[in-house]
C-alpha cells in the first residue's frame, strides 16, 4: 500500500484487524452516495434560525440546558494539575453558593491531565473527556494514536475526543480515515468516542457532510465540529450540515449519534442559537447531554451572568463570577 513509508509495517500490524469492517469498494460507494449540500440554503437556514428570539422562562430553560450539556474545556500547553483542579471544582458547582445551577456534562482535558481530573471528579456525575490521537493536528503515527487513546482510557477518561486525519481525508484516502476511527473506537472500549472533523480545514460543506457520514459509519458516538485551535471553528451552518447528516444517518441505521459544537462559542446567545438549530434539525430527543454537547472554555461565565440577569433583572459583571 505504501512501501516507501517506514511506519507502514506498524500500521499494517494494527489496522488490518479492523480494516475489514467495511471494504474499500463499499466505502467508495458509501462516499459516492453522500448527496451534496446546498451551501446557500444551509447558510440561509442557519441565519434565520439564529434570529429566533428566546426570552424569559424559555431562555432560563435553554441556559440551564446549555450548562448541563457543556464540556468545560482547558486545552493549553500551560495546563497544570492546579488549573485542572480549579476547573473540576467549577464544573461540579459552576456557581459557588447556588445549588440551582446544575453541574456541567464533562471536563475536557489533554491526556496527561486526565488523572488529575479523575481524582477531583470522583463521586460527582461530571465525566472526564480526553482529547487524543495527536490532538489537534492528528498528524502522527496510527500506533501512537491508538496507544494514546488506550492510555487515556486507562487513566480514567470516560469520553475520548479524537481528531480525524484531515491530510488523509483531503487527499481522498477515506479508507485510512475510516480505519483509524474504527481502530480508535476499539481502543476506547466502553469509553464514548467523539470524532472531531475540524470543519475549518475541510473547506466545503460537501466535505463536512462526507466526513460526518464517514465518522458515523466507522462507529463514532458523537461527531464534533472543531478542535478550537483552527479558525474558523464551529459555525452555525456547519453545525446544521452535520446535524442533517446525523438525521439522515439515524434514518438509515437507527443508531442515534450525538453532536458536539466546539470552538469559538463564547456567548449565551451563540449557545442558544445552537440549541435552536439542534431542536429544529434533530428534535427534542437530542436536547440532552447524552446526545448534545457544547465544548467551551469561556462560555460558562457568560451563561451564569445571563441566568443572573434573568433572575435579578440587572445586567451583570464578570467581577462577581469566578475566573474560568
Amino acid at each position: 500500500m505504501c512501501p516507501s513509508q517506514p511506519n507502514c509495517a506498524e500500521r499494517r500490524r494494527i489496522i488490518p484487524v479492523v480494516a475489514t469492517a467495511l471494504s474499500l469498494t463499499h466505502l467508495g460507494s458509501l462516499m459516492r452516495g453522500v448527496r451534496s449540500v446546498d451551501e446557500v440554503g444551509a447558510d440561509e437556514r442557519a441565519a434565520s434560525l439564529a434570529k429566533r428570539s428566546i426570552k424569559k422562562a424559555s431562555k432560563l430553560w435553554a441556559l440551564d440546558l446549555a450548562v448541563r450539556c457543556m464540556d468545560l474545556t482547558t486545552l493549553e500547553g500551560s495546563d497544570t494539575p492546579g488549573k485542572v483542579t480549579a476547573l473540576c471544582a467549577k464544573g461540579i458547582r459552576p456557581k459557588p453558593g447556588d445549588a440551582t445551577i446544575p453541574s456541567v456534562a464533562a471536563i475536557c482535558v489533554y491526556p496527561a491531565r486526565v488523572a488529575d481530573a479523575v481524582a477531583h471528579l470522583s463521586g460527582s456525575n461530571v465525566r472526564v473527556a480526553s482529547v487524543a490521537t495527536a490532538f489537534p493536528s492528528g498528524q502522527s503515527f496510527p500506533s501512537i494514536k491508538i496507544a494514546e487513546t488506550e492510555e487515556a482510557v486507562r487513566a480514567g477518561a470516560h469520553e475520548i475526543d479524537m481528531v480525524i486525519d484531515r491530510g488523509a481525508f483531503l487527499s481522498g484516502d477515506y479508507q485510512r480515515v475510516y480505519d483509524e476511527v474504527v481502530a480508535v473506537k476499539e481502543a476506547c472500549g466502553t469509553a464514548h468516542l467523539k470524532v472531531i472533523l475540524e470543519t475549518g480545514e475541510l473547506g466545503t460543506y460537501d466535505a463536512v457532510r462526507r466526513a460526518s457520514i464517514l465518522a458515523m459509519a466507522a462507529g463514532a458516538d458523537f461527531i464534533k465540529t472543531s478542535t478550537g485551535k483552527v479558525q474558523p471553528a464551529a459555525t452555525l451552518p456547519v453545525s446544521l450540515v452535520m446535524m442533517e447528516a446525523i438525521r439522515d444517518f439515524v434514518r438509515e441505521t437507527g443508531r442515534p449519534v450525538g453532536f458536539k459544537a466546539a470552538g469559538g462559542i463564547r456567548t449565551s446567545k451563540q449557545a442558544i442559537a445552537y440549541l435552536v438549530v439542534l431542536y429544529e434539525t434533530l428534535g427534542s430527543g437530542w436536547m440532552t447531554p447524552d446526545l448534545f454537547r457544547l465544548g467551551a472554555s469561556t462560555l460558562l461565565n457568560d451563561v451564569l451572568m445571563q441566568i443572573d440577569k434573568e433572575r435579578t433583572g440587572v445586567y451583570q459583571s464578570g467581577d462577581y463570577f469566578t475566573i474560568d
Partner: peptide, 8 residues
C-alpha cells in the same frame, strides 16, 4: 435605571 443598576 439600567445604567444605575448595571453591575459592571
Amino acid at each position: 435605571p439600567w445604567l444605575a443598576a448595571h453591575m459592571d
